[in-house]
Amino acid sequence: MNRKLTSKFVIPLFLTPAIILFVAFIAYPVCNTIYLSFHSWKGIYGSPVNFVGMKNYLQVLQDDAFWRSLVNSFYFMVGGFVVLMPLSFGLALLITSKLRGTKLMKTAYFMPVMLSTTAVALMWVYILNPSFGVVNQLLGFLGLESLQQDWLSTPGLNIWCVVLVNEWMYAGYNMLIFAAGLVSIPSDVYEAAELDGCTGWKKLRYISVPLSKESFKIFSVLCVTGCLKAFDLVWAMTKGGPNHSSEVPASLLYNEAFTFKFFGKSSAIGVLLLILGIVLSVLVNNLLKREED
């Protein structure tokens, strides 16, 4: 009988499972979050849900922790452009160069992405431990006791530690993006440049970097849209604390709901996160597209 399936049946039949999952776990939750963001709810199944209008939004917008969390995700973006981009591009230059052992380098550099985020976070939590962590020990060994810090509990410093661990984890991953771009530059461009006496830095400045424009674009999109998605590292390293100093929007949302039971306020953060996410990805895509024309 199966062989007789006609198009008419096939279309709904094949699409249904995907649509059901999409509606149940993405579309409905998004609508429900929007609905809840205008209500107050203690989060106990079956307990009353009361309409409160814009109150949740006002609360969120007046909450320093929320603005702090936005600034912190902005740091993720800054770290991405200032640290991750040059680092990954440098690594990409290495693995596409004529040095020996590029294969081994590539395999090793990429590995951190494969370790799960939580594992990476925990490793670094202990490396940064104030009393016995390696970082402080090394500083002590070098006679730089004054630089020893309680890395993950000092507000202002802790978020940067998380950002840097994030760059450590994703350097190899972004390296592949840049390497793919570098490999696609035809070798006769380099040969011609060499004939004209262009070597070393100049080659990098006038050929490798400008011709990798496409890779830089992909990186920018991932970096801008990714900065709002940070959660796992932050949660596993600091839980957003102490005193909300290392909070990002996603961790704040989780804490408001599952630690403090403010489900309405948490939903309002969710809606703002959703809007910001869509605005940012549309914006960055449009900006880059306009540049193409």
């Binding site: 993405i26 429900n32 979050t33 849209t225 989780y254 996160l273």
Partner: peptide, 21 residues
């Protein structure tokens, strides 16, 4: 298009409804 937009939805804003569900 709807599926494409789905890629952009941050998973974190769905956690409360999914927990309730």
């Amino acid at each position: 298009t709807v599926f494409l937009v789905g890629v952009m939805v941050p998973i974190h804003c769905t956690i409360i409804p999914i927990s309730t569900l």
